[in-house]
Computed example of a mutant assay.
Amino acid sequence: MVLENRPLVHPDRKVTGFRPFKALHHFGKLTKDKEDTEQVFHIIEALKGKKGLHQMMDFVNTDEAKALIRRDEDLVSMLDDHDRWADCAPNSLARRYVEFMEREGLTAAGLVAESHKFKPKSERFDDMYEWYIERLRDTHDLFHVLTGYGRDPLGELCLLGFSYEQNHSPGVLFIAYMGARQMKKESGLSKPIAEALREGRRLGREAKKLAHQDLLRMLPDDIDMVRRRLDLSPPIAYQRALKMLRDLNPDYGIVEQQLAKAA
Results as ranks from 00 to 15, higher is better:
L159C: 06
L136Q: 14
K121A: 13
Y132L: 03
P170F: 01
A67I: 10
M57H: 11
G105T: 12
A113H: 14
L154S: 05
P120D: 08
H144T: 01
R135C: 03
R151K: 12
F125E: 05
M101A: 06
N61L: 11
F125A: 01
A94R: 07
T107P: 10
I175Q: 11
D80R: 00
S169Q: 15
K117Y: 07
D138S: 12
W131M: 04
F174C: 07
A109S: 15
H140I: 02
K119H: 06
L79T: 02
E123P: 08
D58Y: 10
D63G: 07
V112M: 11
N61R: 15
R137G: 08
F59L: 08
F143W: 15
R71Q: 12
R135N: 07
T147V: 14
D138M: 04
P90H: 06
C88L: 06
D87W: 02
G105F: 00
A65L: 04
Y97T: 11
I69P: 03
G155Q: 05
A89V: 07
D74T: 02
D126Q: 02
E114W: 01
A89K: 12
G148V: 10
P170N: 03
A94Q: 10
G150I: 01
W85Q: 08
E130Y: 06
P120L: 00
R137W: 02
L157C: 08
M56T: 14
N91K: 10
L93Q: 01
L93G: 13
D72Y: 01
L160W: 01
P90R: 04
E134C: 04
D74G: 05
H144P: 04
R70D: 13
D87F: 03
L173C: 06
N167S: 12
D74C: 02
D83Q: 15
Q166E: 03
E156S: 07
F100W: 08
V76K: 05
K117Q: 10
Q55D: 11
Y129Q: 07
L173M: 14
M128I: 00
H140T: 14
S122K: 14
L157H: 05
D138W: 07
D72T: 08
E134S: 09
A113I: 03
Q55F: 05
R124Q: 12
N61W: 09
I175R: 09
E156C: 06
R95F: 11
G155C: 00
L173T: 04
M78K: 11
D58Q: 13
R137T: 07
R103L: 08
M78P: 02
Y149E: 02
L160F: 10
H116A: 13
M57N: 12
S115F: 09
A86H: 08
E73M: 07
L106K: 12
A65R: 01
D152V: 00
M101I: 09
A89T: 09
S115A: 14
M56A: 14
H54C: 11
H140E: 08
F143A: 15
E104Y: 14
E102T: 15
E123V: 00
E165S: 09
D72L: 00
V60A: 03
W131F: 08
D74Q: 01
V172R: 07
I133K: 08
L173E: 08
